[in-house]
C-alpha cells in the first residue's frame, strides 16, 4: 500500500489517455438490470481493482468490455474503440482470464494454450521459453485433458495462455479464486512482471486483500453501479479499522510520555486491547506514533 500509491499517482498523471472508459453503462437482460449506470475509468499503465460482492455486475462489465455482451445504454470504450464493433482489433491487444474457466473437455491443457496463443497471432517458437517457464512456476501438467483439471488448474491453463503472449491490457476476472496461497503468490509475481513494462490491468475481485496487494486504484461497484473510485488510501474511510494495541514490556512511564495515550483509557487500564478508529480518520498503516494523518499526534 504505502509503496504503491505514489507510483500509481505518478503513472496515472503521466498518461492521460484512458484504456478503459465507461460512462453510465447499462446492461439489461430482459427485466433484470445487471448494470445500471456503471462508470469506470482506467488510465494506461494502471493496475485497477474492480471490487464488488458476488452478483454486483463485475463479470457482466468485463463481458461488455470484451464485446461478448452488447451494452443496452451508456458508452464503453477500450483503447478508444467500441468493444462491440471493434472486438477483433481490440482483442489482439487484450489477454483475458475468465472467472470460471471452461476448457475443451477432450483437448489437453497444452493444446488449449497453443490454440489460444495461435488465435492471438503468437509465434509458438518465440514463446516456447516463456510457456515452459510459466508451466514450471505454476506447476501445471499440460498433458492432462481439459475435463480432468480441477478449477484451480483450469484457471492456471488460462493464466499460462494469457501470460505467454505479451498484451497491452490484461483483464482478469477473480483470478485467484481457485488458487492456493502459494500459487496466489506466484500469480502475483507473474502478473507484476507482465505489467511492469507499462501494460494496463483490470482485476476484478470480491476480496479486498487481493486488490490491496496489486492495485493502484480501485472501483467499487454494487448492484450494477459504481459507488466509489480512488486509491485504496482514499477509500480507507469506507472500512471500519481497528488497531490492536499491546502494552506488554512498556512501563507506566513510557506510556505517560505518549500524549495520545490519554485517548485510550480502556487500554491504559488493561494494558492491552483494541482501538476502533472513527470512520472519518485515515490511519497510518504502520504505527500511530507519527504526526501525520492518523490522528494520534505522537
Amino acid at each position: 500500500m504505502g509503496e504503491s500509491v505514489p507510483g500509481a499517482v505518478g503513472r496515472s498523471l503521466g498518461s492521460m489517455s484512458a484504456v478503459i472508459e465507461t460512462r453510465d453503462l447499462q446492461k439489461r437482460f430482459g427485466r433484470v438490470r445487471a448494470l445500471d449506470g456503471l462508470d469506470l475509468s482506467v488510465p494506461a499503465g494502471e493496475v485497477h481493482g474492480f471490487l464488488g460482492p458476488n452478483g454486483a455486475g463485475k463479470s457482466t462489465t468485463i463481458r461488455v468490455l470484451l464485446g461478448l455482451y452488447r451494452a443496452s445504454g451508456g458508452t464503453a470504450t477500450v483503447f478508444g474503440g467500441n468493444p462491440w464493433t471493434d472486438a477483433v482489433a481490440l482483442h489482439r491487444r487484450i489477454a483475458y482470464v475468465p472467472g470460471d474457466v471452461s476448457l475443451w473437455p477432450n483437448l489437453s491443457g497444452g493444446e488449449a494454450i497453443d490454440l489460444l496463443g495461435r488465435l492471438r497471432g503468437a509465434d509458438p517458437a518465440a514463446n516456447r521459453d516463456r510457456r515452459r517457464h510459466l508451466l514450471e512456476v505454476f506447476e501445471l501438467d499440460p498433458t492432462k485433458k481439459g475435463r480432468a483439471y480441477s478449477k484451480g488448474n483450469r484457471q492456471k491453463v488460462a493464466f499460462v495462455a494469457a501470460l505467454a503472449t505479451a498484451a497491452d491490457l490484461y483483464i482478469l476476472d477473480e483470478p485467484t479464486s481457485g488458487l492456493d496461497p502459494l500459487m496466489e503468490a506466484v500469480f502475483r509475481r507473474e502478473i507484476r512482471a507482465a505489467v511492469s513494462d507499462g501494460a494496463t490491468e483490470l482485476l476484478s475481485s470480491h476480496i479486498l486483500s487481493e486488490v490491496e496487494h496489486l492495485c493502484d486504484r480501485v472501483s467499487i461497484i454494487r448492484a450494477g453501479k459504481t459507488v466509489e473510485t480512488g486509491t485504496l488510501a482514499d477509500l480507507r474511510h469506507l472500512t471500519g479499522t481497528e488497531i490492536a494495541f499491546a502494552s506488554t514490556g512498556l512501563t507506566d512511564a513510557d506510556l505517560a510520555g505518549w500524549p495520545s495515550a490519554s485517548r485510550l483509557p480502556a487500554i491504559w487500564s488493561a494494558r492491552t486491547g483494541r482501538w476502533p478508529l472513527p470512520p472519518t480518520t485515515t490511519p497510518c498503516p504502520r504505527c500511530c506514533r507519527c504526526s501525520r494523518s492518523c490522528g494520534c499526534r505522537a
Partner: peptide
C-alpha cells in the same frame, strides 16, 4: 482410464475451423 493428451498442439489445431474439426 483416460490416456494423457498431447503436450503441444498439432500444427492443424489453429483457428476456429481447426478447433471445430478437432472436436
Amino acid at each position: 482410464a483416460e490416456r494423457p493428451g498431447r503436450e503441444h498442439a498439432r500444427r492443424t489445431l489453429r483457428g476456429s475451423f481447426g478447433l471445430a474439426w478437432r472436436l
